[in-house]
């Protein structure tokens, strides 16, 4: 895909986000119990969805790399994971701001908070692992294995921590929580531009990775002369 289309898509995402922000601040009433701060949910929840979508995609790409040995999939996997980590950080930080207002503390060792933090650390470990290996095919192979292990730990993390602590609000889109339809529409309506943003970031990052590979190949060719 040409870069112009990418930047255009990013522009559309920015416009949509601006429009959503305007509607959030002027069009939607404050939530009855939480007041104005509840609006953070329109970024907090979609960021979490995007983050886990990215982590799942990185698992698929990691397995695909191991099957095909095509370095393209490794580049995709690292791009997707990095953007997933950024959205995970957005989720954690927005949640902390919300907690400071509603709970009065920045952080509590609640299961959702803790499990999200552990997931984030697991995937941050993937990036550290990559930075420690020079040789591209070895890096791709070992980091793909790391992706499979990381994703296998995630369900354990969620179950184990859930068994002994909970304070986070119940999920509003599924399960016991409830949500007004206007809020719900805004939640999904804001997820769309965030997904577009994630797609643009992943693509830009992938292009960088590809150029890096081309540069490395040229460097090797020059050295061999």
């Amino acid at each position: 895909m040409s870069e112009k289309i990418l930047y255009a898509l990013g522009g559309v995402a920015a416009i949509l986000l601006g429009r959503n922000l305007l509607v959030m601040l002027t069009g939607l009433p404050d939530e009855a119990f939480q007041g104005a701060i509840f609006r953070i949910i329109f970024f907090h929840v979609p960021a979490a969805f995007t983050c886990f979508l990215c982590f799942f995609a990185s698992l698929v790409l990691g397995i695909t790399y191991l099957k095909t040995k095509n370095l393209r999939y490794d580049s995709m996997a690292v791009s997707v994971t990095e953007v997933g980590l950024a959205f995970g950080a957005a989720n954690l930080i927005s949640g902390m701001i919300w907690a400071r207002i509603i709970w009065g503390i920045w952080w509590t060792w609640d299961w959702r908070l803790t499990s999200m933090l552990i997931c984030w650390l697991l995937y941050a470990g993937y990036l550290v692992l990559r930075s420690a290996i020079e040789e591209p095919t070895e890096r791709a192979r070992l980091s793909s294995v790391m992706l499979i292990f990381s994703f296998s730990v995630v369900p354990f993390v969620f179950f184990s921590i859930k068994w002994f602590r909970t304070q986070h609000p119940q999920p509003v889109l599924y399960g016991e929580g409830k949500m007004d339809s206007a809020y719900r529409a805004m939640l999904y309506g804001n997820w769309l531009p965030l997904l577009m943003l994630a797609f643009v970031l992943i693509s830009v990052r992938y292009l960088q990775e590809r150029r890096q590979r081309e540069l490395d190949a040229m460097r090797r060719a020059v050295h061999s002369l």
Binding site: I118, V128, A132, F149, V153, F156, F159
Partner: peptide
Amino acid sequence: VNMRLRELMLPMLVYPMLIP
């Protein structure tokens, strides 16, 4: 095994995996 900073990398990667 073949990495530099091997002694550091192992606990850094293993402890989050072992949390459950």
